[in-house]
């Protein structure tokens, strides 16, 4: 295996000389095909990381590497070919006047021949299950549908990593589950890395690894399972753990011993069953 896909070396960032540091000496690596979640309260610096990765912002100190390239003026467009980003507001990233035109935008920018474009648009719309909406205008789509178009637009450029920068935070539960389902289907079918930036802890369960940010510092790197044992610490930095993890912790407190920390209802019930049959 070659080197990591994304690497942050002692990265610090602030918006201006007289502004506070948004990121302080951050280090981490993300491997090819890995699925990472970055969490933290609003203002913890998690979205800044996304913008640094593809050079929308550049750090005052430290180095960032993407796919073996240093992220700087010279490499910026090559880097952006490897990184696809889906932003928070579904309305403000929809460039085309129709679904088809919007997906074409990224392809046009990269000078992809028209025949190839048509093929890729069709394929990507099928992947996100939006083939019936090719000619739709954005104001006739729901938030979830717009975000799926955004994902298709990003997929069309065949990136090595897709960053979802709070892509579900403005959606209703239906839209949210549409996106979560779309992404998990992609994870299974494509060899690609995913970075999910979120404050919804239900979305991190499927991540290989979680990076927790707090006040500009990398506070913790852990698997979701390890993370859910740290309820008190998470609450302290403005986050919450899901219901299952909370219940598991309370159960341990009243003397029900569980072998591993459960991530979902089935696991918890299974654990309880084992505990029950041992008695």
């Amino acid at each position: 295996m070659s080197g990591p896909l994304i690497e942050f070396q002692n990265v610090s960032f602030r918006y201006g000389e007289d502004q506070p540091w948004v990121l302080k000496n951050v280090n981490f690596t993300i491997g090819e095909g890995e699925s990472i979640a970055i969490i933290g309260h609003n203002g913890s610096g998690k979205s800044t990381i996304a913008k640094l990765i593809n050079g929308l912002l550049s750090p005052q100190a430290g180095k960032i590497f993407v796919d073996g390239m240093r992220v700087n003026e010279k490499n910026i467009w090559a880097v952006r070919k490897s990184v696809g980003m889906v932003f928070q507001n579904p309305d403000n990233q929809f460039v085309g006047t129709t679904v088809r035109d919007d997906i074409a935008f990224g392809l046009e920018n990269r000078g992809i021949p028209r025949e190839e474009m048509i093929r890729r648009i069709e394929e990507c719309l099928t992947v996100v299950n939006m083939s019936d909406y090719v000619q739709h205008e954005p104001h006739r789509l729901s938030g979830g549908q717009k975000q799926r178009v955004a994902i298709a637009g990003v997929l069309a450029i065949l990136p090595k990593v897709i960053i979802l920068d709070e892509a579900t935070s403005m959606l209703d539960p239906k839209g949210r589950s549409e996106i979560v389902d779309t992404v998990s289907a992609l994870k299974n079918n494509r060899h690609m890395s995913f970075i999910t930036i979120t404050h919804d802890l239900n979305e991190i369960i499927h991540a290989d690894r979680v990076i927790v940010m707090n006040d500009g510092e990398l506070w913790l790197e852990a698997t979701p399972r390890q993370l859910f044992t740290k309820k008190d610490e998470l609450v302290q930095i403005g986050l919450n753990i899901p219901f299952v993890a909370r219940l598991a912790e309370e159960l341990t407190r009243v003397g029900v011993e569980l072998e591993k920390h459960p991530l979902n209802h089935e696991e918890l019930l299974e654990e309880l069953w084992t505990y029950h049959s041992k008695m």
Binding site: F243, R246, L247, E250, L251, R253, V254, G255, V256, L272, Y275, H276, M279
Partner: peptide, 14 residues
């Protein structure tokens, strides 16, 4: 509450 629920479940199982 979650902790009340935990106690109840523990009771039932025992």
């Amino acid at each position: 509450s979650v902790s009340e629920l935990a106690t109840e479940i523990a009771d039932r199982l025992k």
